[in-house]
């Protein structure tokens, strides 16, 4: 950034190179959360850095030289490991490239993957699923089991993040209570950033309406539950950043999050179970498909999209709050 000297040491190339090598972090100056750890490459090269790292270790875990010694021993193993890994990865790339060279050519209509499966989705998709958007029809009707699994991946992902990052206020553990106090940034709120708040006033409604539009039109145009839900989630996050937890807490609490997720996933699970059960037993499902192209059409796809949209919006917002301060 500074251009005081025009030599290699301060040149952008050097900075870029050292960043690529993982030696420096251009964002270091901005983040004061913890003391910077000396970068690892230097640790072993100079005695000063070795001392620094030893202090670092002893600061946390008392005087123990063995850690440093063992770290030094691991270095040699790691060089070998590094070389081996590069060789392995280059090998993988070469083999796969060789494979690609004998794969069918892209964009060719006679490729093996453009077979009767894709043909039926295109030719009969509209009549069989009622969805104008063939991809939506495919993932929510023909291959709905995959998509149900995918929602469960999102659900279990958010559960794991909850396990890791949720801090419980009434916890008996002293250190956890300290962590809550540290990560709680509520006293700095509301920030009253007038520019941000005014922009948010204009943008949040637009974002929310756009998100709802994407969710509701998933079967008619590009979009659907996941993309619309992500847009809705980003709207919630923007609102939170502009107006703070105080205002957000009035309308969106952890209880509400849990209820929405539970209801949406339960409905999804029951609706799809019904459809799988009737399908496999060759029963009529009795769900009207409606007129293709109308907003109330295509059977279960619209309600499923709404469910998925709600779950995704809540999950995105929950990820944000959990990463920021460990709770809603």
């Amino acid at each position: 950034m500074s251009r005081k000297k025009d030599n290699y040491e301060t040149s952008r190339w050097k900075k870029f190179k050292s960043w690529v090598d993982g030696e420096t972090d251009p964002l270091d100056h901005g983040m004061e959360a913890h003391e910077a750890i000396p970068p690892r490459e230097d640790i072993y090269d100079s005695a000063a850095h070795e001392k620094a790292v030893k202090e670092e270790l002893s600061k946390i875990y008392g005087e123990d030289r063995r850690a440093v010694l063992r770290a030094r021993g691991i270095r040699y193993f790691q060089r070998f490991y590094k070389v081996m890994s590069v060789v392995l990865c280059l090998g993988i790339i070469m083999v796969l490239l060789w494979t690609v060279a004998s794969l069918p050519i892209t964009g060719n209509a006679s490729n093996p993957d453009n077979n009767e499966v894709a043909a039926r989705y295109i030719e009969k998709g509209l009549q069989e699923t009622g969805a104008v958007n063939i991809v939506t029809g495919m993932i929510l009707d023909y291959r709905a089991f995959d998509t149900f699994g995918e929602s469960c991946v999102l659900f279990i992902g958010s559960c794991c993040v909850l396990v890791l990052l949720r801090l419980d206020g009434d916890s008996k553990n002293e250190s956890i209570r300290k962590m809550i106090a540290e990560s709680d940034d509520r006293h700095f709120e509301p920030k009253n950033d007038i520019i941000l708040q005014k922009c948010a006033c204009v943008l949040v409604p637009i974002i929310m309406i756009f998100g709802v539009y994407i969710v509701l039109n998933g079967h008619l145009s590009p979009g659907g539950g996941f993309s619309g839900g992500a847009v809705l989630g980003s709207g919630l996050i923007l609102y939170l950043n502009a107006f703070g937890y105080g205002k957000m807490g009035k309308m969106f609490t952890e209880k509400l999050y849990k209820r929405i997720t539970l209801c949406a996933l339960t409905f999804y699970c029951l609706a799809k179970s019904y459809s799988f059960f009737t399908g496999a037993n060759h029963l009529e499902s009795g769900i009207p498909l409606g007129t293709p192209g109308a907003i109330l059409s295509s059977g279960l796809i619209l309600p499923l999209n709404i469910c998925v949209g709600l779950v995704v919006a809540c999950t995105m917002y929950a990820f944000y709050t959990l990463f920021r301060k460990g709770g809603m």
Partner: peptide, 15 residues
């Protein structure tokens, strides 16, 4: 085999 949905083998999911 058991169809997961209303569509037979190459089109729908199956267990």
């Amino acid at each position: 085999t058991y169809m997961m949905g209303h569509f037979p083998a190459p089109w729908g999911n199956e267990i």
